[in-house]
């Protein structure tokens, strides 16, 4: 079943074409890996999907609704969540507060009920705290829950960011290089979390990753980008033997 449909998406920055005529479908429950050389337009694609960039032309349909003109916060409310390549956490806030912010769209208290913090607002905080603690347990970050995230090491920050994105209970989770800059052990942990998320919550994921080993092991399907265009799409095995992909990565064979 189709969850996200992108048709003929183009994005330009002045004279530079970041994305050209990209069409892509994401099915419910699958992990789609997006790969490609640097500057291929992978992050631009994610930015278009969650509304940080406004595409020049093309349509994005999510759960049967055209969201092409929706601002980012509305897309979040529909169930699109993400992590960033360069961690974008709220660095003065604690791990708990960061993940609680992921629950923002599910909570209801306003200025007045929050200021009184009696009954309604307090019940809400307790209820959502329980949910947040489940995520903290899942990601194994119990020991740092009261630490400001700015003080945490890089690998843990990546994990907290994943936790914040998960707290939103997204239908579609966009992961922009979740394993960048990690050592093998941390990468294995992160790969395990991604597979567990797919299994436990059935969350659909779009994953940008450079580590081909991880991509081939984790993803159900792979889309390959080069110079803003999608040049191939298929199962990991198909992609490994696709001549256009080999050319994009390794260059043209001489003679």
């Amino acid at each position: 079943m189709k969850l996200l449909g992108i048709s003929e998406l183009s994005l330009h920055f002045g004279g530079v074409t970041a994305l050209f005529n990209v069409s892509l479908e994401v099915n419910k429950g699958e992990i789609l890996a997006v790969i490609g050389p640097n500057g291929a337009g992978k992050t631009s694609l994610l930015n278009c999907i969650n509304g940080l960039y406004r595409q020049g032309s093309g349509r994005i349909v999510f759960r049967g609704r055209d969201i092409s003109r929706f601002p980012p916060h509305k897309r979040a409310m529909l169930g699109i969540s993400r992590t960033f390549q360069n961690i974008e956490l709220f660095k003065h806030l604690t791990v708990l507060e960061n993940i609680m912010l992921g629950r923002h769209i599910h909570m209801r208290s306003g200025i007045i009920s929050g200021s009184i913090y009696w009954g309604f607002a307090q019940r809400g905080e307790v209820m959502h705290r329980r949910r947040v603690e489940e995520i903290i347990d899942f990601l194994e970050i119990e020991s740092v829950r009261r630490k400001p995230v700015g003080t945490l090491p890089y690998g843990l920050q990546k994990r907290v960011e994943l936790g914040r994105a998960l707290a939103l209970e997204p239908e579609l989770l966009l992961l922009d290089e979740p394993m960048a800059g990690m050592n093998t052990e941390e990468k294995e942990d992160m790969a395990r979390f991604i597979l567990d998320i797919a299994e436990e919550w059935g969350t659909t994921m779009i994953l940008i990753e450079h580590d081909m080993g991880v991509v081939m092991d984790v993803s159900d399907r792979v889309a390959v980008f080069d110079f803003g265009q999608k040049i191939a799409e298929g199962s990991p095995v198909e992609i490994q033997h696709n001549p256009r992909v080999i050319e994009a990565y390794l260059g043209h064979q001489a003679g």
Binding site: N50, G51, L52, P71, P72, H73, A76, M77, S81, R82, F84, E88, L89, F90, K91, H92, L93, E97, M100, L101, G102, H104, I105, M107, R108, S109, G110, I111, S113, G114, S115, I116, Y117, A121, G124, E125, R164, L168
Partner: peptide
């Protein structure tokens, strides 16, 4: 009231806007 505000939903959203407004928007704020 101020202490309470900043341990509940709206106050947290204010601090999120301060720390990283783009990430705040992506979280549905």
């Amino acid at each position: 009231c101020t202490v309470n505000l900043f341990r509940s939903r709206v106050g947290r959203a204010f601090m999120a806007v301060r720390d990283r407004d783009l990430a705040a928007a992506v979280m549905g704020i």
